[in-house]
């Protein structure tokens, strides 16, 4: 069995655990524990201290592994371990909590330092009243226009699937670019 890895990351309470639960074909293995900090308790009752883990079988011999990072910065030592060897990553951002945008920028910067693989950003909780539009979130995060930012509802399978497919498209494009640039290099060296 060959395994491929995608990492789901983002700030605290962005919906990472739910995102994996929605698409995973196994019961998600998680290490959620009751929240202890009073401020965090207002947002959710359980939090991921280690990782969330879900799988998606591609065929009889290949499997996609989905790893969710713990959201709080005090567990960010885990991020590097999870990012190692991944195909790409998805950064989730809560569309209803502008207070978390700065944390998301930290996540984006840290992952860009750790790994050069493709990524996309998903603006979650788009089904809630007043959810901020992805275009505004792009501006607040300072995201370049070539990085996709998608509207997402983490409880909705088609929505989650669309985000993963967009990431796969970026991986695909990168593979083609790598191939054509190596062809050009060969032509130059032969010429």
């Amino acid at each position: 069995m060959v395994n491929y890895k995608i990492v789901i990351t983002g700030a605290y309470a962005a919906g990472k655990s739910q995102f994996i639960r929605t698409v995973s074909e196994i019961d998600v293995v998680d290490t959620d524990v009751p929240v202890t900090h009073a401020e965090e308790k207002e947002l959710k009752h359980h939090t991921t201290v280690g990782l969330d883990f879900g799988t998606l079988s591609i065929d009889a011999e290949q499997r996609l592994l989905l790893f969710g990072t713990p959201g709080q910065e005090r567990f960010d030592f885990m991020w590097e371990i999870l990012a190692e060897g991944c195909l790409g990553y998805i950064v989730l951002v809560d569309s209803c909590r502008p207070a978390h945008f700065n944390e998301t920028i930290v996540v984006l910067e840290r992952f860009a330092e750790m790994t050069p693989v493709p990524f996309v950003v998903a603006a979650t909780k788009q089904d809630l009243p007043g959810a901020l539009p992805p275009m505004y979130i792009r501006r607040r995060l300072g995201l370049p226009t070539d990085i996709p930012i998608l509207a997402c509802v983490a409880t909705d399978y088609p929505s989650v699937s669309d985000v993963i497919s967009t990431l796969l498209d970026r991986i695909d494009v990168l593979a083609q670019d790598s191939s054509s640039s190596s062809e050009n290099n060969k032509e130059h060296s032969h010429g």
Binding site: Y4, K5, E84, L87, G88, P116, G142, P144, I171, S178
Partner: peptide
């Protein structure tokens, strides 16, 4: 936009065969 992110290489998992095609 001011954040600069470079995405130039593939995952080591996929680079393992070390042959472009």
């Amino acid at each position: 936009s001011e954040i600069v992110v470079s995405q130039r290489s593939l995952s080591p998992v996929l680079m393992a065969p070390n042959h472009e095609h």
